[in-house]
Design a binder for these strands. Structure first.
Lengths: 333, 333
DNA sequence: TTGTACGCGTTATCAC
DNA sequence: GTGATAACGCGTACAA
């Protein structure tokens, strides 16, 4: 492995000159520049990024902190981040936290000690600990899938969860559903989850439909809770003709519950999902769902982040487009 | 951020002494050790890993190179690697390659320049370029899901794909199926894929059943190819009573094809999957499949790797257990 | 425009 | 046992 010194020697110049052509940090005579370039090429020289990091106090690493890589929603986000980062010469340090605050902080410390250039952060709720870390360490960060007002002043990329849920509900109402249930995410801390219930409720109100709390089930985004919620809601004397789930995984669980209760979907029950992850397509009936451009959220998160890292671009809040994709799980009554 | 010098000053010792208590590299008097420890605590000092890496030429980074993080099979593996690595103080550099050799090599170069301690590698086929990289750079590596004889002498963690496919086929045969189709992975380069077809064929032979090439479809592990393969096989004049798919995703695609052709599963057609990823459970009917302990493969890969990194443990080939998990997609005839 | 020399935070080799 | 000091590979004032 050749170093900058080898290049300097071969080109007959000093290391500083080599450094200058490497970084375009100062003007260099074109003939010497050529000599250096040739030497670099000849030696197959590549600057040592560790040494660089040590002096610059900034690496080419981007931390991606998420609750669970083994969840299609998060892995799609990571893929988006990775693609964009790779394009710009950054690598991904994967921080899998299980949604645990302690682990999040632990990883944040690791990122700091490795001089990570920035981090894309997806958490159920932005906590004071997070905010103060980013403030103190001055590490650029963008929060993914987080409502603008909860990011502590940092950048974010998301969709408008309130409006998306509002429109999803409207979609159901337009199809003559007046009895609509809702399986939500955790309402205590999942901020975008709260937005979705609120969008749902608002749509009900605006259409003169009463909200029925017995048809609201607070799940946790997992298959199991969709199943349980479905059982809870559908076994009541009076049951809704449609249920809106705050994500696809729960919707799929709900499908199982409906099947178990012999309620055919969509004939007897319409089911509307959220996210449009891979499972929406493979389940039977295929899920009508609100598509959230997860991979794009990852891409734009990375893009925004790198903008802040390199260009000193201003903090910003991006809202991406969602859309209702109609498949087989909803029908008019 | 305090450095080793600050600690040395505060403790009234030299930096070398601090370094020694940090690394237990040489004996230190217990009273001075205590002073150092106190100083460390007082300053909240944490050794700078970048500087460490620069002098040791070895970081605490483990590269995980896979084709696609947004695929439940690979993401499960990554989760396993991450868990084990985190436990041992290593972090994960995620290398998403799209299965492209050029990108694999590109990432390998990045890993080298970052002084990665080792890499967990999952690729369709181990190529000469891979092997020579690991030989020359002396970077420890373990290949995941790769047949022992194709790892170029490096460690590996996998299951016995041949036997697993053999047993899967036997499972079908025991249930009186004599006409069995097979949807395979790519046969040109996916080595474990080849093993699975061979296990399938061998089971046929050992049971006196003819192999019918028209019932073999070469897919690519994706949903779409399972669907297409299903159509191809099931629209023939004579069709099998059971089809074995080399992974779950294709099995799910096959399910769609069967539904489209009005062949109810498992009544008219038994379908056997492979892997037991999340989708096996959410599809209807639920998939009977051969469970491969993907997450554990990740864990053991990391464990083996770290053993080689730290202990100079010998190269080894681990074969983990698989099992047939019976759900609703297969029946006796 | 170019070169010298020092610093980034550690570890390791040497003397003491 | 302990303490200087030279690496590790690079960027950058500063001097020329």
């Amino acid at each position: 492995m050749s170093t900058i010194k080898d290049v300097a020697r071969l080109a007959g110049v000093s290391v500083s000159t080599v450094s200058r052509v490497l970084n375009n940090s100062k003007p260099v005579n074109s003939d010497v520049r050529d000599r250096v370039l040739i030497a670099i090429d000849e030696l197959g020289y590549r600057p040592n990024s560790v040494a660089r990091t040590l002096v610059n106090k900034k690496s080419q690493l981007i931390g991606v902190v998420i609750p669970d890589i083994d969840n299609p929603f998060f892995s799609a986000l990571v893929r988006g981040v990775e693609e964009e980062a790779k394009k710009k010469g950054y690598s991904i340090l994967l921080c899998n936290t299980g949604g645990d605050l302690e682990q999040e902080i632990q990883y944040l410390d690791i990122l700091k000690e490795k001089y990570a250039a920035g981090v894309v952060f997806l958490t159920a709720r932005v906590q004071d600990e997070h905010v103060s870390f980013f403030r103190e360490s001055k590490t650029p960060v963008v929060f993914a899938c987080q409502p603008e007002n909860l990011t502590g002043g940092f950048s974010s990329v998301a969709i408008d969860d309130f409006r998306a849920a509002y429109e999803g509900t409207s979609y159901l109402i337009k199809r003559e559903h007046k009895n609509i249930g809702f399986v939500s995410g955790p309402l205590s801390d999942s901020s975008s989850g709260v937005l979705r219930v609120e969008g749902f409720k608002q749509a009900l109100i605006d259409n003169g439909i009463d909200f029925r709390s017995e048809w609201l089930y607070e799940g946790n985004y997992r298959y199991r809770s969709g199943y349980t919620g479905g059982l809870k809601i559908l076994q009541q004397l009076e049951r809704p003709t449609a249920i809106f789930c705050a994500n696809d995984e729960m919707a799929v669980g709900l499908l199982s519950a409906a099947r178990e209760l012999d309620l055919s979907v969509p004939e007897k029950l319409s089911v509307l999902g959220f996210d449009d992850t891979v499972m929406a397509e493979i389940v039977n009936p295929k899920l009508t769902t609100i598509r959230q451009p997860i991979c794009a959220i990852g891409k734009y998160s990375a893009h925004t982040l790198i903008g802040e890292i390199e260009g000193g671009v201003e903090k910003q809040h991006l809202l991406l487009e969602y859309e209702i994709v109609e498949r087989g799980s909803c029908k008019s009554i």
